[in-house]
């Protein structure tokens, strides 16, 4: 009632203030929007447009509708790459996030000496560019001169072949895990630090052990961070490119040009001179990533409701 009887003048000033706020918001986000439109939206639309055409070295450009997409859905190179990345996701992401969570919880428990040193140590690999990291691991994996091979030789064992066809995916998983455990740990650790200390005190008064506190308070409290890191990892997995692309140089028989969907799209565009089909592949990959991310989010939300 009181609101309705408010004099019109007051409402007007409120509107002006609100409008000013809007204006400020738009002005402040303008630099982002400009770059976003120019660098993301426009190229995306252009790539979408390209994906409906076909360009031949002889014969030129023609409109083919959804043909490129149809071709991709039966293309063993694309499907094989997506399947390989799905396997990567199922194996590597749980291992990596599990390790990150473990490190975050241990650090958060405050039971560690040299805490800062360890935190930095776990995080450090993330600061190394993936290209450098892969070159380094490529050396470590080496069959002749790598330290693992030399150790095996010294013990009179056959040298492990990390770069053989069946092993190389796991070798790549190891590189990615090594690089990203620290990053995910920091995200989780930051979330853990923001849990109010009273909860722990209450739990301890109730006689809960450290383990119990971690399981029943800490992990549920950082569900948001866990979801975030999971989705980032899902996206990262499907977009794998640098690591396999560099290891290809030393393991060309084990890692094909179509090893991951991104590598395949790159090869199509820049070697096969088929950028239209590459655009379709890239779009389909985007759809796969969106679908998987959505499923992950949906499952997490449902769990939250259940609990």
């Amino acid at each position: 009632m009181t609101q309705q009887t408010r004099p019109p003048l007051q409402r007007k000033t409120a509107n002006v203030a609100k409008r000013r706020q809007y204006a400020a918001a738009y002005t402040l986000s303008m630099p982002f929007m400009v770059v976003f439109i120019l660098m993301i939206a426009v190229p995306l639309i252009y790539a979408g447009y390209l994906s409906f055409f076909k360009k031949q070295l002889i014969g030129g450009v023609s409109f083919v509708g959804l043909d490129n997409y149809g071709r991709a859905l039966t293309d063993p190179s694309f499907l094989g790459g997506v399947g390989r990345m799905a396997l990567f996701l199922v194996v590597q992401v749980p291992v990596m996030l599990g390790l990150s969570l473990l490190f975050a919880l241990v650090l958060d428990s405050g039971m560690l000496r040299l805490q800062r040193f360890i935190r930095l140590g776990v995080f450090l690999p993330y600061a190394i560019p993936s290209v450098i990291a892969t070159l380094m691991w490529g050396y470590l994996y080496g069959k002749d001169f790598g330290p693992f091979a030399q150790l095996a030789k010294a013990l009179g064992l056959p040298a492990p072949d990390f770069l053989a066809g069946g092993n190389v995916l796991f070798s790549i998983m190891n590189i990615v895990t090594w690089g990203f455990v620290g990053y995910n740990m920091i995200v989780m650790y930051a979330a853990l630090r923001s849990i109010p200390a009273e909860l722990y005190e209450a739990a301890r008064v109730d006689g809960a052990s450290e383990w119990r506190v971690a399981w029943s308070i800490k992990i549920p409290a950082i569900r948001g961070a866990l979801l975030l890191t999971t989705i980032f990892s899902v996206i990262g997995s499907f977009q794998l490119f640098n690591e396999p692309n560099l290891l290809r140089v030393i393991a060309p028989a084990a890692i094909g040009q179509d090893y991951t969907p991104n590598m395949y799209a790159y090869q199509l565009s820049f070697v096969n001179q088929d950028s239209n089909y590459a655009a379709a592949i890239a779009f389909l990959l985007g759809i796969v990533i969106m679908a998987v991310s959505y499923v992950v989010q949906l499952t997490a939300n449902r769990k939250e409701k259940e609990s």
Binding site: R248, V271, Q273
Partner: peptide
């Protein structure tokens, strides 16, 4: 040398 060439070329 394991270098692949970009050949986004048309007619």
């Amino acid at each position: 040398l394991g270098v692949s060439a970009l050949t986004a070329c048309g007619n």
